[in-house]
Design a protein around this nucleic acid. Structure first.
Length: 917
DNA sequence: GCGGATCAC
DNA sequence: TATGGTGATCCGC
């Protein structure tokens, strides 16, 4: 019987155009007990025709492609192995075989019991009229089990009901009834307990029993015990049949129980040569743990079809897989398996998930999420569990372009050598957070789950799941039926959470959000919160603050600033005191004025800005204020009143109606309101920013300057020469010719590498400011851009301040490896920073009403940035960050040297495409 | 610790 | 019309 099933799946290799279904690898034609006489081709054709064109089908195709790619990858690696490699690995194998062989234990007798078509059999038991008729447990969307009559038609578990009905129009559907199955399962387990009180329940319908002792005590063979047990199960359950396998270990016993299914058994003698003979011809797929993918990889890439092949090709396995995987494969080939009495295993996670009609409606999604959080919380309370890691699982309806890191950039160089686009299954995503405290309350779960979900929106979703893991081991064993201990802990936990969880947001507030269409209409085109949204916040703030309060707050803030020695020193400095020839622009009245000497040169840093650059001048003065505030922070810290981020953002925004300042508004220039810090940048609608936020940088100035093509001789602009910051070191030579470590990619390395991608990179600098643009070399259209400034940062020397990295939507759609462009653009910026003497790159993953925040943080973390701190607006230090960055969010830093080292794998390639590091 | 992927039932 | 839910593990980062 085992041999009979060996030819399955082979038809996939013969791909005839007239029989497209042959290439559709469905699991439903795999051999399964009771399916011997099935017309496999017909089943395959029907399944194909019902599936083709569906989202499911598309995803299957993607998974198929993923598998093919894995196989190709494995083949490549295989081909690169030299014979000396293999002989070395063979030595490893030989030694390992001896070690494994020494662990072989033929003294135990294990029995695996598997109920036959369990759910279906139970249903037939409680409704005998179903007997003899094709029947399936489940619904039109999915069936759990089919009885043997139905299996003759090709109907089987895990098949969608509507396809099953096509295969078998008379199929009777019976809904699942878990309590019923649990009841019958308990009956079987009572029987099992008589043979092994410590039996391992694999699921409701199967178990492993160590029957060594029973056999010895009663002087019976394993086969005899199995007969008796099966008979006992049959009578105790009132008619359920099961199959059994008896062998020296659990792995073999499991294989054996499948051999004479249904209502049969198979005994494999505890004899080494018997075991070896049995295992050597056994198809690998029969082994638990070897599924469709592993089977194909082993079969198609390494020509390993049977367990015996695993020993024969052991050297390949150890060369290509991890030690633990190779060990597993080899031990399978030797017919080894677990024989020990298993430890008491406790669950490691608990989860709840639901599938529904795909929707992008956020209110709907949030309500689904709430339901699931509730269910999960209930389950945890029932089990008396508290956990601290929450994982959100999503199944998206369609392929979504996402900020998915191209795996080549960070993984093995073998991936890079392959030069192929790594295919990723985008249908299922998971997002996790670890909380400070253990919890099982639905409020806590929902609160954090909502954040996770928000970060993913907008997206059309058809499944939401929540999982909790990392249990509190002390609370785990409390008796949930009493409920008091758990309850106590829950209450304690949740009340404390409310008190000291700075990060928490009011659940009711979020509910309000859900009811507010405007708050939900977050633009897809940009990460930025729309101006209208901010306006809403402002209006909300305004309504809640009376004019008097408003006044008082202003005074409070002034006092805070006045309390600061340096600022007070310049308190009385007025702009109108400046000479006729100079135009004073102070950011705040208390501050030393920035003076444009001779009408165009900054008295503080020497940068030259013509009077017509009104906004740029404004931003430049903001820059100095921000710098000053940083310096203040470094001095003796002044006690300050915490200011909520909303207040700062919201209130100042309230005054921001005049977005542009007219050059002739002399009166206004005396006092430049702070709102200008928070002027939104112009959003290019074509651009979807990976990160976009308020700019302090006179970006528009770049447009009036000639750019510097990296491919041509670098041109120094006159402005650059005047800068107080050291000019960038010119470096266009390959990294190897420098004194640097060879692992650092030079600008020219990056450039060379980018040319292969048809990228035209350009960097423009204006004093400390820089702009990197990437254009499609053919069309000339811009596909990506990075902007920023090289500036001193307190205590850190020079840092590369990365303001924006943007990729056009077009780029993101066309180029799945976003960083293919993004990384190049970023790399030029980073290298520029390196050449300028920066050690650190910093950016702010802006906090845009939760929306993309965690996505951004994740994105940058994967690039190589690390969170430094949350800029929340609650300290004067935050103030400095907020002024510099123009908002709140997560400050992230990266060590430039480390970044270059990390990215060197991508850029340091020889002509032949081989990694040379 | 996180995220993707595989696997089993 | 339409392809599940729960839990575990491994790997790479």
């Amino acid at each position: 019987r085992v041999r009979d099933t060996m030819d399955e799946g082979e038809s996939s290799s013969t791909n005839s155009p007239s029989r497209p279904w042959e290439s559709y690898n469905t699991v439903f034609t795999n051999a399964k007990a009771g399916m011997e006489g099935v017309d496999k081709e017909k089943v395959q054709r029907i399944v194909y025709e019902m599936s083709k064109g569906s989202k499911y089908f598309q995803n299957e195709e993607r998974k198929e492609a993923l598998m093919k790619q894995k196989i190709e990858h494995m083949r490549d690696r295989c081909a690169k192995l030299s014979s000396s490699d293999l002989s070395n690995y063979q030595k490893v194998v030989d030694r390992r075989i001896l070690e494994l062989e020494a662990t072989r234990d033929l003294s135990r007798v294990w029995l695996h019991v598997d109920m036959d078509a369990f759910y279906a059999a139970v249903e037939t038991l409680s409704n005998p009229s179903l007997k003899g008729k094709p029947m399936a447990v489940g619904g039109l969307s999915m069936i759990s089990t089919a009885n043997y009559e139905a299996r003759k038609f090709g109907v089987r578990a895990a098949m969608p009901g509507f396809i099953a009905r096509k295969l078998c129009p008379d199929l009777i559907f019976v809904p699942v009834d878990f309590p019923k199955y649990t009841h019958y399962s308990d009956l079987t387990r009572k029987v099992f307990r008589n043979y092994d009180p410590n039996f391992i329940a694999g699921s409701l319908d199967e178990a492993y029993l160590d029957i060594t002792e029973v056999c010895r005590e009663r002087g019976l063979s394993g086969g005899e015990i199995a007969e008796e047990l099966r008979s006992s199960v049959h009578s105790e359950t009132g008619g359920l049949t099961c199959s059994a396998g008896v062998a020296a270990n659990r792995l073999l016993a499991k294989v054996c129980s499948d051999i004479n299914k249904p209502n049969g058994q198979f005994v494999l003698q505890n004899d080494r040569s018997t075991v070896m003979t049995f295992i050597s011809s056994l198809p690998i797929r029969k082994i638990g743990g070897i599924g469709k993918v592993t089977e194909h990889i082993l079969k198609d890439a390494l020509e390993i079809k049977t367990c015996g092949d695993m020993v024969l090709k052991g050297s390949l396995l150890y060369a290509l897989f991890t030690q633990s995987s190779a060990d597993f494969f080899l031990s399978v080939g030797l017919g080894l398996g677990k024989t020990d009495t298993p430890e008491v295993r406790s669950r490691k996670s608990i989860s709840s998930e639901r599938t529904f009609a795909a929707t992008g409606d956020e209110r709907l999604l949030y309500s689904k999420l709430a339901e699931i959080a509730e269910m999960l919380s209930d389950d945890m309370k029932k089990e008396g569990l508290m956990a601290r890691t929450l994982t959100l699982k999503l199944k998206t309806a369609t392929f979504e372009v996402d900020f998915q890191m191209h795996s080549s950039f960070s993984s093995l160089e073998t991936h890079i050598c392959a030069e192929s686009v790594t295919i990723c299954n985008h249908q299922i995503r998971s997002r996790a957070v670890s909380l400070q405290r253990y919890t099982c309350s639905s409020e806590d779960i929902l609160k954090h789950a909502t954040k996770l979900l928000k970060a993913e929106l907008p997206v059309s979703i058809r499944l939401i799941g929540l999982r909790m893991s990392q249990f509190n081991e002390e609370a785990r064993h409390s008796d949930p039926s009493q409920g008091t201990i758990t309850k106590f802990i829950v209450q304690k936990g949740s009340s404390r959470q409310n008190l000291d969880d700075n990060d928490s947001f009011d659940l009711d507030a979020s509910k309000n959000c859900l009811g507010n269409d405007e708050m939900l209409s977050l633009s897809y085109a940009s990460h930025e919160t729309s101006y209208d949204q901010l306006k809403d916040v402002v209006e909300y703030e305004e309504q809640s603050v009376t004019p008097n309060q408003e006044c008082k707050k202003k005074e409070d803030r002034t006092q805070v600033l006045e309390g600061d020695a340096l600022l007070r020193k310049h308190k009385d400095c007025k702009a109108d005191s400046s000479a006729e020839k100079t135009e004073a622009v102070s950011v705040l009245p208390q501050m030393e004025p920035l003076v444009w000497v001779d009408g165009y040169r900054c008295n503080l840093c020497g940068i030259e800005l013509p009077p017509s650059f009104v906004e740029e001048r404004q931003e430049h003065s903001d820059f100095h204020l921000a710098q000053r505030l940083q310096n203040e922070e470094s001095g003796p810290s002044s006690s300050t009143t915490p200011t909520s981020k909303r207040r700062i953002l919201g209130k100042e925004k309230a005054n921001s109606k005049p977005k542009k300042q007219k050059p002739n508004q002399k009166d206004d220039s005396k006092h430049i309101p702070i709102y200008t810090f928070f002027t939104k940048s112009n959003q290019n609608s074509q651009c979807r920013g990976v990160q976009t936020f308020v700019k302090l940088i006179p970006l528009e100035m770049f447009d009036s300057l000639g750019g510097c093509h990296l491919s041509s001789e670098r041109r120094r602009s006159p402005d650059e020469m005047k800068m107080s910051l050291p000019p960038p070191r010119l470096n266009l030579s390959p990294s190897s010719s420098l004194g640097e470590p060879r692992s650092l990619p030079s600008m020219s390395d990056i450039l060379t590498s980018s040319k292969a991608r048809n990228l035209d990179l350009k960097i423009q600098t204006l004093g400390p400011f820089f702009r990197v643009t990437g254009k499609n070399a053919d069309t000339g259209s811009e596909v990506g851009r990075a902007e920023g400034v090289v500036r001193p940062w307190f205590g850190r020397g020079l840092v590369l301040h990365l303001d924006t990295i943007r990729l056009t939507k077009e780029t993101m759609v066309m180029d799945k490896s976003l960083l293919g462009v993004g990384l190049y653009v970023g790399a030029v910026a980073i290298r520029h920073g390196y050449d300028c003497g920066c050690r650190t790159a910093q950016l702010l993953a802006i906090y845009d009403s939760d929306l993309y925040h965690s996505k951004l943080v994740r994105f940058y973390r994967r690039i190589g940035f690390e969170e430094v701190k949350e800029v929340s607006g609650s300290s004067i230090g935050d103030m400095a960050d907020m002024l510099v960055w123009g908002g709140v969010g997560t400050r992230m830093d990266a060590n430039i040297h480390h970044l270059l080292v990390k990215w060197s794998k991508v850029f340091l390639k020889s002509i032949g495409g081989r990694t040379v590091i």
